[in-house]
Nucleic acid binder design. Structure first.
Lengths: 192, 192, 192, 192
DNA sequence: AATGAATGAGTGTTCATTCAT
DNA sequence: GATGAATGAACACTCATTCAT
């Protein structure tokens, strides 16, 4: 296993700072301090703070997308696919809580940034991939008819909500203990 | 109808700025400019920026709580109560989109602020009120057994998720068009 | 004994603040808080902060001058007069340490203020009174000849220096324990 | 002779401002203006205003200590040593009147600052050096017995007092003209 | 690829003072 | 004489970014 590159060290340090004091309160100096890189090096690799944020965001969503992709390769059937969307998400959040917290709270900022279009494109592909996986079942009438925006929110909304609360330390339950329940609720909510 | 007080004018101006450029990018000067108040007056009324943010947050949650309270006075039955939680929320969001966006994205910041405890206390009372309204039905076994954190998220999660997307302009559907569907999904997800 | 007037209450409060945090760090609000007066009342009585400082300064020097005057009425002889200058000063400092500290550190500021001339006039009279008391002995050749500025500093310099250090908490000795020694040194230093 | 460093330029500019308008009335902007440095550079070198003040103070006392040290290398005997304390001080004040004025009026502020301990340590060493130089004579009984705080004040008090007055423009005499007289008075005041 | 001293526009906040009541 | 809400100029300080080495 290769040692982390300077770029990765900077991203890890940034995430740690974002977790501790928030994205806006994190200064370039803090990241420099934590990563061991020099200011010049950080600007050489990323150009500006906004691009550090975007790089961290995009890397996170890519990692989750990859996990989901691996899941799709292993399951089949409408129910399994819907449940996979929930369980993959929970598994990723539990494995990467800081990263998940960062992503959950900074979508708007990255969308508004100079790299917003890149994020939107990644999201489009992500959704396209999911709908491609579900298209067959939909045509078979296995899902309750509803607007596509609702469909997404009904599946993943409870999980997003609980994940946010869990990551903020506002829950008594462990997120992972609700894994099967949330998956079942998602399936029940969309099945025809 | 009374004319808005100086305090309210400041709060309204702050919300408009937060909506346009975000909370962190909003400067005291912008709020001053928009509200017509002097800097001194703003500090006389609120003390600092953080307290302006917190005051706006707390006023918003109080308003929603009041709307919900009025709803509880009018409905009865487990199904009606669960659906009310969803429809009241949607109604408030649709009626106050800027305020809703602000609240949806700044809970953590207010919790971490000097007024965090006040917010947590308000939240405790809010949840206590809801559970009190539902306690009878729960005892009758009308709800599927699940952890309390899940129960909340299953009911309101899809609505929160869709509201976030709608407020960010990421949906094709109108939030209000999903009102009955989301209410029904909520009820179906928790009924025994 | 009359109760302190509102003006005196303000001056006492100001001195307490000056002692605790320094003159520059003391705000009008602090004095208001401590005195119980309103802001308006303070400005009614004094006009501005500078005049509060000057009033406190002038009241202090007047009080010391009065003490000295009473001393002159009781003693006679060159040695007694010189020693009186030292002992009166020490007695006043020990009785009014906060006031003394304030006066010792704010002469320049009051001199530079709008009331500077008033202070200089008071000082002129103070020195004139002292030299009048000593004029006879000087003519009798009882003092070592030296410039008048030196004469003053030689008499009171050691006492000023020790008083400053004592008031700042930098001495092991108590100021009062050095009373006789300093008086004797003063006399030895100026006697012919 | 090397050209002054950026740090020294800032310090010199600060001293000039302190002399003209006083420490509290001097703004960072004034020092920036006068030194030619950028605000960022000033904060890069010193961190904050308080540390500029302290650096100037400590540099001044160090310079005087060095002058005194050179004097000790050249003289011997109790009388010469005592007189050296006075004459070195006067020589330094006359050569550096602005610096001297600054030091004479800002000891308390630096002691109360974050660098107070550093100043106290420097003072401890300064006094230790002096008492080491005099220890032998003291043991020989060449000095009048008195508390150590008095001993210092008796020697240097008249000089401090006159220097303050001279630096404030309140004297008719020139400080330097009183050099020998003050040295003699100091010696007379402490000799056994 | 790496460094870090230098930059300066921009920020939140303070506080002496005014004035209508 | 007394009040205190309102004012706004002025301040110390921050921090993303640049650039010569």
């Amino acid at each position: 296993m290769a040692r982390p590159s300077r770029k990765d060290e900077i991203l890890q340090a940034a995430l740690a700072c974002f977790t501790e004091v928030g994205v806006d309160a994190t200064t370039i100096e803090m990241i420099r301090d934590r990563s061991g890189a020099s200011i010049g090096s950080m600007y050489h690799h990323f150009g500006n703070k906004e691009r550090i944020i975007a790089a961290l965001y995009l890397a996170g969503t890519a990692q989750y997308a990859e996990l989901l992709e691996r899941g799709f390769a292993e399951v089949s059937g409408a129910e399994a696919c819907i449940k996979l969307l929930v369980t993959s998400y929970i598994d990723w959040v539990v494995a990467n809580p800081d990263w998940a917290r960062f992503i959950l709270h900074n979508r708007g900022r990255v969308e508004a940034s100079e790299l917003g279009e890149q994020l939107r494109e990644a999201n489009r592909q992500h959704y396209a991939r999911i709908f491609q996986a579900l298209a067959g079942y939909r045509e078979q009438g296995l899902f309750k008819p509803m607007p596509v925006d609702c469909f997404s929110s009904v599946i993943i909304g409870p999980t997003h909500d609980l994940a946010r609360n869990w990551l903020a330390g506002r829950t008594r339950s462990e997120l992972v203990d609700c894994r099967e329940l949330l998956a079942q609720v998602a399936w029940d909510s969309v099945r025809a």
